[in-house]
């Protein structure tokens, strides 16, 4: 059976990893290729690159970055952040990405999902969703523009729409949990995995090693993404996998 995936996420700005990574003695703490190679060595199952470049040359910088990483690191690579068109997806896939993640642009134009899926296959199109719990409606609301702008979309409904349009995977960040280190948003992922049949990647909230078995066992997600706990060396991928194995979760 498929192994559950542990996925470090790197924020990339103009070809540099934004927050330095200090879990090993890297010569250059901001170089995406060095960091990616170190994570491959640690046993990461996939890497997500989130492009946070704010300028117009944005695409060019991230495409070059992926081109370099894919020449040295041989594992699945997902790229998100500012993908607006099938041409953007194509450039990244050609550079060596395996999947492209769409977020705000897909909310504006849901056909971007189907166009990408038709052209490259569903396995290349990940729908990224930033979700926040709304206590009034007791439901999760979709936010766009890096979590700054609320929409009137319900996260579960939007996930179903995205899958119907051809998204092959969902990467869902809990805005309530992100940065809190209090564990993944189990309720959100329970609702998502009950609603869709494609793989769901949980993101946001990791603080300790037991957060991983919790989300896999209680919410049946396929992958768990984390950034700071790995980047700052609070946990290693192998710490996490040891814990998961101990709890009977299948990992590589």
């Amino acid at each position: 059976m498929l192994a559950k995936r542990i996925i470090p996420c790197l924020d990339v700005d103009h070809g540099r990893v934004k927050k330095g990574v200090n879990f090993v003695n890297l010569k250059d703490v901001g170089d995406p290729t060095d960091i990616a190679a170190a994570y491959q060595k640690q046993g990461a199952d996939e890497l997500v690159f989130l492009d946070i470049t704010a300028t117009n040359e944005k695409r060019k910088a991230i495409v070059n970055t992926i081109e370099k990483v894919a020449s040295q690191v041989f594992m699945p690579l997902t790229v998100g952040g500012g993908i607006h068109s099938v041409a953007d997806m194509m450039a990244l896939l050609k550079a060596g990405a395996d999947k492209t993640a769409v977020n705000s642009a897909a909310v504006q134009n849901p056909d971007l999902i189907s166009e990408g899926a038709e052209k490259f296959g569903s396995q290349c199109v990940v729908l990224a969703i930033d979700a926040k719990f709304n206590p009034q409606t007791q439901s999760y609301q979709v936010y766009v523009n890096g979590g700054r702008t609320p929409t009137n979309l319900d996260a579960i409904e939007w996930a179903k729409t995205g899958v119907a349009k051809g998204a092959g995977e969902l990467l869902v960040t809990s805005m309530d949990k992100d940065g809190t280190k209090s564990g993944y948003d189990i309720e959100l992922y329970k609702r998502l995995t009950a609603a869709v049949s494609v793989p769901v990647i949980a993101s946001g909230g990791v603080g300790k090693v037991t957060d991983f078995p919790e989300v896999f066992q209680q919410a049946d997600v396929d992958g768990a993404l984390a950034a700071s706990v790995f980047h700052f060396g609070e946990l290693t991928i192998s710490d996490v996998k040891k814990e998961l194995k101990k709890d009977g979760v299948i990992v590589r």
Binding site: M1, R5, D45, S122, Q123, D222
Partner: peptide, 11 residues
């Protein structure tokens, strides 16, 4: 009861 496509790391 398995997801299709078969996508990910398998043994």
């Amino acid at each position: 009861g398995v997801k299709v496509p078969h996508m990910g790391w398998d043994q």
